[in-house]
Simulated scan of single mutants.
Amino acid sequence: MAGRNGRTVRDLRRANRTAVLQRLYFDGPLSRFELGPATGLSSGSVSNVVADLVADGLVEEAGSVDSDGGRPRTLLRVAPASGHMIGVDVGETRVRVELFDLTLTELARAERPLAQQRYDVDVIVGHIRDGIAEVLAAAGLPAERLLGAGIGVPGIVEHTAERGAVVHGQTIGWDAVPLEALLRAGSPLPDTVPYLIDNGAKTLGQAEMWFGAGRGARNAVVVLFGSGVGASLVTPDVEQGRAVEWGHLTVRVRGRRCRCGALGCLEAYAGAESLLARWREEGGRVPEGTDEETALTALLAAAHPSGDESADPVALAVLEETAEYLGAGLSD
């Protein structure tokens, strides 16, 4: 039966379950007494909802704490094995696939390095499919047990009714790539398990707001600083975050050419590829035959050596100039 606001008893029950699960997931373990103020539910409603969630295997007891003069209060938490999910990061140098339980404990991981033709669509799709199959096999988990697979990608993600998530990535050569449809074709996951695809900087921003340095903040800018440069802006108006193409802000007129084709972008000075290229152009000793991460570590070590060694003035100058460009970009 629907009430005056159109909500049925089933809607109300679902909303109450969601409120309790969210608070336990983000702030737990919590006692029933603490769940009341945290969710705005009455003590009776909390008891009923918790009893249902325990019976469904979604919530379990997690010890107890002393109360003020009364009996110890039983703590509750989300049951780790009640759900599983996969996270995929399509990065600059590799595709990483990880399997988690509901408390974000990592159960299995697979990584696929990206060669020079790193953003070939078929290669990326194959790496994601193979990585998902590998982590499921490693954990012995049936695919239908998954709640979903979240995928962070470079570029702008358009969500369409016909083709699902479509990726527009000028800097990686992707023009309206129907990534979700491609993954579904020959997918190791059944149709009941959703692919949740979004911009990598946006997913990073959301993760920081939920579990990292942004917890408790109303407004935040989360910067992704690696081979490329990106950012996510989170405000009360955009609680899920908005991806910002911050790396393609012009910081120098007629400056270095960026991989997007424009001149003077922030990424052309602050991205990892640019850092190493500028160090090499100025006569720096860039390690040959190493990956990007190792070469960057060498750059940092040269600029700020340990012990009594003197700093490499070229490496130090490159980093100081980069810091100026980053400061200007953040200010803008």
Rank of each mutant, 00 (worst) to 15 (best):
F100I: 00
G69D: 09
P72K: 08
F33K: 03
V97W: 01
L24P: 00
T74P: 10
V88M: 03
P29T: 09
A79T: 14
L102A: 04
L102P: 12
L107K: 06
V50D: 05
D52A: 14
L24C: 01
V46M: 06
R109S: 07
P80W: 06
Q117Y: 12
G40Y: 03
T93A: 06
G70V: 07
R112G: 01
P29H: 00
G44A: 13
R71K: 13
D56H: 15
V46E: 03
G63K: 12
G69T: 10
G28T: 01
V97S: 00
T74R: 12
Y25Q: 11
A55H: 10
E98Y: 02
P29A: 03
V88A: 07
V95F: 06
L41V: 02
E34S: 07
S31I: 11
V95A: 00
L76Q: 08
A38H: 04
N48S: 12
P80V: 02
A81N: 15
G36I: 00
Y25V: 06
P80H: 01
A51Y: 10
G28E: 00
A55I: 13
F100N: 04
T93G: 04
V97H: 00
R71P: 15
V97I: 09
G83H: 10
L58G: 01
T105S: 13
S47E: 06
V95R: 05
T103E: 15
L114T: 06
D68V: 03
G70N: 05
P72F: 12
R71Q: 11
P80T: 00
G69K: 08
H84G: 05
L24V: 01
D66V: 10
V97G: 00
Q116A: 09
E106V: 10
F100Y: 10
G87W: 12
L76W: 07
V49F: 05
L99H: 09
A62K: 15
